Amino acid sequence: MPNDFNQQVIEEFRANAGEVGGYFEGARLILLTTTGARSGERRTTPLGYYPDGGGSVLVIASAGGSPKHPDWYHNLVAQPQVTVETGVFTYEAKAEVLTGAARDEAFARAVEADLGWAEYQAGTRRVIPVVALHEIAGDGPPNVNASSMGQAVKAIHDAFRRELALIRKEIGEAGATLGAQLRINCLTFCQGLHNHHTGEDLGMFPFLADQRPELSPALDRLREEHVQIAALTAELKQVIGTAQADPAHVREEVERLTAALEAHLTYEEEQLIPVLDAPAGPGDTP
């Protein structure tokens, strides 16, 4: 892929919190920054990815079926610590090249989700590598790519909206059974939503309740909605966990979750963003 094309995607990605058009429109996309194996320079590449649960994602070194591995793959083999940008979060990760059955199982899931990967493999004699990027836990809060607390809330919410829209699309295109990767996509989304709401319940909401007592009714409603949404995600996970999950049933549960979550996110943005982004008064805590 030409460098000028990559740079255009990178700039658009960073300017729009991970949302791009053109070739990558509607795809799961990250920016992967590696250290050059020979030059030592930092190199950033836009890549499609698949959720892998537990704070990890998978990327595939297909290079469009080229006979050679892509440069970014050689770089991370030489220096496994990499930087991942999701559009909302930036974090350090450790790259692990999957081997044996782990590689084959992950690649099979990718092929099940998109037959193009099988075409790439058929077009080259090399075994296309699959790489797991494991987030390295850091101290302090996550590194959110936003200039204010209000913008951070909106960016995180929009990321959930985009992922849920992708899942709904994938379920709509599913056949008689639910694919393994789609199951993981759903479970990863549910876990991410749980982590986000837990963080709000333990961090942002108590802070706001202390600083802005007039927000108490809104915060109480938001906490109640967290409980309701947790019940919906639990039902979705139960449906997905059955041996022969019916895509139609899964779709019904996802639509129920979508309706409740969209109403919740909209209400939270209406109530909290104006407060979070309001100019600080002389007695406010920075």
Rank of each mutant, 00 (worst) to 15 (best):
Pro2Asn: 10
Phe5Cys: 06
Phe5Leu: 10
Asn6Lys: 14
Ala15Arg: 14
Gly18Cys: 01
Ala27Leu: 12
Thr35Val: 14
Arg38Ile: 02
Gly40Ala: 01
Arg42His: 12
Tyr50His: 14
Gly54Ile: 02
Leu58His: 03
Ser66Val: 07
Trp72Arg: 07
His74Asp: 08
Thr83Lys: 07
Glu85Trp: 11
Lys94Ser: 04
Ala95Lys: 06
Ala102Leu: 01
Arg103Cys: 02
Glu105Lys: 13
Ala106Gln: 02
Asp114Trp: 15
Thr124Phe: 12
Arg126Gln: 10
Ala132Pro: 05
Gly138Met: 00
Ala146Asp: 01
Arg161Glu: 03
Ala165Arg: 03
Arg168Trp: 04
Glu170Thr: 09
Glu173Thr: 12
Thr177Trp: 04
Gln181Ile: 10
Phe189Ala: 05
Asp201His: 05
Gln211Glu: 13
Glu214Pro: 14
Arg223Cys: 00
Ala231Ile: 00
Lys237Met: 04
Ile240Val: 08
Gly241Trp: 06
Thr242Cys: 03
Thr242Glu: 13
Gln244Met: 09
Pro247Trp: 13
Arg251Asn: 15
Glu255Lys: 12
Leu257His: 11
Ala259Thr: 15
Ala260Tyr: 14
Leu261Ser: 12
Ala263Lys: 13
Tyr267Leu: 12
Glu270Val: 13
Pro279Gly: 09
Pro279Ala: 00
Gly283Trp: 03
Asp284Gly: 09
